[in-house]
Amino acid sequence: MATNPMHQFEVYRIGPEIVLGSVNFSFTNASLFMVLSAATILFLLFISTKKKLLIPTKMQLISEMSYTFVAKMINDTAGSKAKPFFPFIFTLFMFVLFCNMIGMLPYSFTVTSHIIITFILAAIIFIGVTILGFVKHGIRYLELFVPKGVPIVLLPLIVVIEIISYLSRPVSLSVRLFANMMAGHTMLKVFGGFVVSLGLLGGWLPLGFSVALTGLEILVAFLQAYVFAILTCIYLNDALNLHH
């Protein structure tokens, strides 16, 4: 059981079983780690910005840097029109980042390695951006599916292709995060298993790989949060500034 690399992704119930109708609302380890990462973000940001010093402490510097990082990202990709969406993007980025990073701790659970969670996040973004596009531009938002300078003969085919490429956004967004996290954690566990099974004699090489992979996984954890947030910005940009 301990050497099974997929065992770490098991979701189990903590505490009493809560069933309303046909839906199971029980508190699981996934919910626990989501609450944990949200609480960690709140706690860190609250502590670091409690004393607003002119010369910042290290903690204050970290929270200010994360603020400017996200603010710059939004400004660069979606322009100044996307400023009102800063709280949403910042929350999204921090949540994904902390879920990934907390998953890197030993004995913890990686929430983002489950496709249902990443897909729900992506679906919220997708539906929200689509509604936003229709609210901002009305029926003209459908021009997104009709590129300029296409002969009329090809138009039905191009529209179908564009619609599929639009619908593939949430899938690619969610699958990317989920696949990266799950593959990385499985690989870590497999190499960890090699260390144990090869013992003192042969275990040093996989141990070295394990250490290197841990470093890589921390990079991937940050990178995936970044990519998730920047793609949200790009989709927002498409909805706000309608042109190709």
Binding site: S168, V171, S172, V175, N180, V227
Partner: peptide, 10 residues
């Protein structure tokens, strides 16, 4: 990473 998943997702 972005480009590779985009190809598959569509």
């Amino acid at each position: 990473l972005k480009i590779s998943t985009e190809l598959v997702a569509a």
